[in-house]
Structures are given as structure tokens and as C-alpha cells.
Simulated assay, not measured.
Amino acid sequence: MIRSDARELGWGRFIWQFITILLVYFIAQIPPALIWGFTTADGQFSITSTGAAVSTAGGMAGALLMAWYWLRRDDAVEQAWNLKAPTSWSTTLGWAVAATVAIIGWFTLGAMLVEAIGLTTPDVGQVLGWVTESPFQFALWIVMVAFFSAGFGEELLWRGYLMDRLSRLGGLRGKVWPIILIQAILFGLPHAYQGLGGVIITGVVGIGLGWLRFHNKGNLWACIIAHVAVDTIMMSLSYATKLGIMPAT
């Protein structure tokens, strides 16, 4: 996945790049939040469903732009963001389907396991409430979040940019599993708002997707398709439940 003549990356430069991407990610979320936000009667700031979706997409767009800047500086865009047509689309789709089934199964099993050991299970009620607010909001969240922010954005950022950066660091070059585990931990930490259980469950998903990228020799399509499919399925099931098409659990 990394050429033998690829430029090494120092830890200081890596940390600086990562910090700038995080800063841009959060800053880019502010304008949509202000535009579609409002203050409740008790003085609390809240945000509409549209604001949450656009803010999420805006933050991801900013982060990807910053990541692209750093990758371009290191002449590493094509290596990190390997979106070339795979050798076999049927094989890629097969791996994507397998990953989709595994991730959805893990969400169910993982929630049971973290609850069994006394940890808080992820609560995505607020998000799904936004998603199922109306047909328009459902379509908006599918396009801007399931497809762009999560499916393409998170895979380009975590499995693409981050794994490329880690692969170039002194002490990590050529070490597949340390790279997979570190990116999975960093992928899980932003889900701390879901409690430790959410971090663990998401981190395990990151391990699986990280392995899938290595297995596909750096090509990201299987990871992207699986991620898009998982989020689309989960949102669709929630909306179908609200419409009464699916029984509530």
C-alpha cells in the first residue's frame, strides 16, 4: 500500500496535520449550526434536523479539504485515496456485502455485550429522530450523512488519510495490525458522546474496516460501499418503523 520510496512522516508533522483537520472539521460545522439553530424558551441552544445534517456534511467537507491539502503536499493523494476501479467489482461487492452484514450483526451483539458488562449502550435516538422527522429530512440525511459524510467522508478520512499517514510514521511502517488498531481507536473516540460502549462498538467496526482496506490493497471501494449500506439500512429501518411498515422493537 505504501511505495518503498514513499516520503516518511515525522510524528510532529503527523500530530500537527491531525490537529488542523480536527479544527477545520469543528469550525466548518459552526455556520450551518448558527443558520439552522435556535434558542429554546429556557435559553438552551438547539438545532433543527436540517441544521444537524448540513452541519455534519459541512464539517466533513472542511476536514476532507484540509486532509487533501496535506496529502497533496506529500504527493500522496492517489495512495491515500485509492478510488481506482477494483480488479473485480464482483469480488469488491462481495466483500462489501459481507462487511455490511458483519457490522450490522456486531451492532446488535456488541450492544448486548457492553450492556452485560455494565456499560452504557449507544443512544442514537436524537439522530434517528431527526432522520425520521419527514420524508424530506429522511432523504436529506441519506444523501448528506449516510452517503457523503459517513460513507465517503469517514472512509476517505479514517481508512484513507489516517491509515496512509500512520503507514509512513517511523516505527509503524509495514506494521499492519498496529496501524489498524491505532486508526480504530482514533475512529472510536469521537463517539464518546455515546458512552464508553459506543467507543468500543465503533472501534471494533474500525478494526474490521481497516483490515478490509489492507485486504483490498488500499482500495477503498469495499469500505465505502459497506459504510454507505450500513447507515442507509439503519436509517431506512428506523423510518419504516415510524411509518408502521416495520414493527417497533
Score class of each variant (00 low, 15 high):
Leu212Cys: 01
Leu22Gln: 10
Ile180Gly: 11
Trp130Leu: 08
Gly129Tyr: 08
Val143Trp: 06
Val127Leu: 14
Met246Arg: 11
Thr120Arg: 14
Asn219His: 11
Ala76Ile: 03
Met60Trp: 00
Gly151Val: 13
Phe152Gly: 11
Ala248Met: 15
Phe152Asp: 13
Val97Lys: 10
Pro32Val: 03
Trp177Cys: 04
Trp130His: 14
Phe38Asp: 14
Val114Phe: 13
Leu209Gly: 09
Met60Leu: 05
Val145Glu: 07
Gly10Thr: 04
Thr132Ala: 11
Pro86Ile: 13
Thr202Cys: 04
Leu237His: 03
Asp5Val: 15
Thr249Ser: 12
Met112Cys: 11
Val228Asn: 02
Gln126Cys: 00
Leu243Ser: 09
Ile19His: 00
Val127Gly: 06
Val24Leu: 03
Gly174Trp: 06
Val199Ala: 08
Thr108Ala: 15
Asp74Thr: 08
His227Gly: 12
Gly129Lys: 12
Gly208Glu: 07
Asp75Val: 12
Ile201Phe: 02
Gly170Ile: 03
Ile225Pro: 05
Arg3Tyr: 12
Ile117Tyr: 10
Val131Met: 09
Leu166Glu: 05
Leu166Asp: 06
Phe14Lys: 02
Leu166Arg: 03
Ile182Cys: 03
Thr87Pro: 03
Phe18Met: 06
Ala240Ile: 06
Ala28Asp: 02
Ser236Asp: 05
Glu8Phe: 04
Arg213Asn: 12
Ile19Met: 04
Ile2Cys: 05
Ile182Thr: 09
Trp211Leu: 15
Leu9Lys: 00
Pro32Cys: 00
Gly105Cys: 11
Thr91Glu: 14
Ile245Asn: 06
Ser236Ile: 07
Tyr25Glu: 01
Pro178Gly: 03
